[in-house]
């Protein structure tokens, strides 16, 4: 199979990220599969785990454990897969218009931050590895990771979108190992990950928001920026790059964003949209409390498994020799960063 050639070519870069990903431990190769993982253990570890929101550290542990499990699974299938840590924040979002003047001065609408995030994604070792594969290699690697077709799991998001995914592949296996009931995990994940979009849509549809936008637009008109709503100004800013050099476009973007934010804070828009966001957020949490609680229970129930997966000396086997001989860089610096 062609896929082995690119594997070797990128093994060092991938291994560098693998060691970073040892669940907070940089002591050596990631541990091999736990007995639970190897046996494809079914059923949540703690069906009655508490329905309280996991701490940020616990959430990171779960994300990391999932990545480690995916990596081991891919390794067994002949594909290197780097455990990477997602950046903490990809910039603030202002769904109701920019309303922080200082932030606007520094970031505009966040266009530069967006480009940095896109570059980070491009530099992701898995992305780089994947792009280096032949067409057939890519198809095989992708199928190993997420199953051959997006069927088997199905859930409807509160946005109205029904989303399906494969119950096979290494992502599904990893989540099954952690959360036990994959179908339920998929459902609560799809529902909860879409609460933020629904919340923003509710605010946009609210009469109070429309009224506040009207006042904001009057302020903008007076400032020589006659945009009917924050969406229009954001779109206009996005077009600056079409006929300006990047630095010039960034400056023009920031200038417009500052006017926008000044108008948002100088009219009721900032206050009204923040209040509505809070109100609809609470309402949605109440409406979907069952899915939220179930998500938290599954997450808390998965913590013991995640800790075992991430235990520094849980190693039993490690099959790809490239990983065993690679250096152990500490940071994401290096030629691949």
């Amino acid at each position: 199979m062609q896929r082995h050639r690119p594997v070797r070519a990128t093994a060092a870069a991938v291994a560098a990220f693998l060691f970073l990903g040892g669940c907070g431990s940089a002591t050596g190769a990631p541990p091999g599969p736990s007995p639970e993982a190897a046996a494809g253990r079914a059923g949540p570890a703690e069906p009655l785990a508490p329905a309280r929101e996991p701490s940020a550290a616990d959430t990171r542990l779960l994300e990391r454990a999932e990545q480690v499990l995916i990596s081991r699974c891919m390794d067994r299938r002949g594909f290197p897969y780097a455990v990477t840590e997602a950046p903490d924040a990809t910039g603030r979002s202002f769904p109701y218009g920019v309303d922080d003047v200082e932030w606007a001065r520094a970031h505009g609408y966040g266009g530069r931050d967006e480009r940095a995030a896109a570059r980070a994604r491009e530099a992701d070792p898995n992305q780089r590895y994947f792009r280096g594969l032949s067409a057939s290699g890519r198809a095989a690697a992708r199928a190993a990771l997420m199953g051959s077709a997006p069927v088997g799991l199905s859930a409807t998001a509160p946005t109205g979108m029904t989303i399906t995914a494969s119950a096979e592949g290494c992502i599904a296996d990893a989540q099954r190992t952690l959360y036990g009931d994959l179908a339920t995990w998929f459902r609560v994940k799809v529902v909860t990950m879409n609460l933020r979009p629904v919340r923003e849509a509710r605010v946009h549809e609210d009469r109070q928001y429309a009224d506040a936008v009207g006042q904001w637009a009057a302020c903008m008109r007076a400032a020589g920026r006659p945009y009917p709503d924050p969406d229009a100004s954001r779109q206009a800013a996005g077009r600056f790059g079409e006929n300006m050099a990047p630095a010039e476009a960034d400056a023009a973007e920031a200038e417009l964003a500052v006017v926008e934010a000044t108008c948002a804070t100088g009219t009721p828009l900032a206050r009204v949209s923040q209040a509505l966001d809070h109100t609809y957020g609470e309402r949605l949490r109440a409406r979907h409390q069952e899915e939220i609680a179930l998500r938290w229970r599954l997450q808390n129930g998965a913590l013991p498994t995640a800790r075992r997966v991430c235990a520094p000396h849980g190693s039993q086997e490690h099959s790809t020799d490239a990983h065993d001989t690679a250096p152990k860089p500490r940071s994401s610096g290096g030629s691949h960063a």
Binding site: Q67, I70, Y81, A82, V83, T84, E85, A86, P87, Y109, A117, A120, R121, D124, N126, Q127, F130, R138, A141, R142, L145, M146, G147, P150, A157, T159, G160, M161, I163, T164, A165, S166, G169, I171, A172, F186, K189, V190, M193, N194, R196, P197, E200, A201, H204, P230, D231, R234, Q235, A237, G238, R239
Partner: peptide
């Protein structure tokens, strides 16, 4: 195909504006 930035958020309007919805990696 990514360990991070795997989910996709789609937007009603150009330049990430308006209503949106989120889809997980593989969905």
């Amino acid at each position: 195909y990514a360990g991070s930035f795997g989910d996709v958020r789609v937007y009603e309007n150009i330049n990430y504006g308006g209503a949106s919805t989120c889809a997980p990696n593989g969905g």
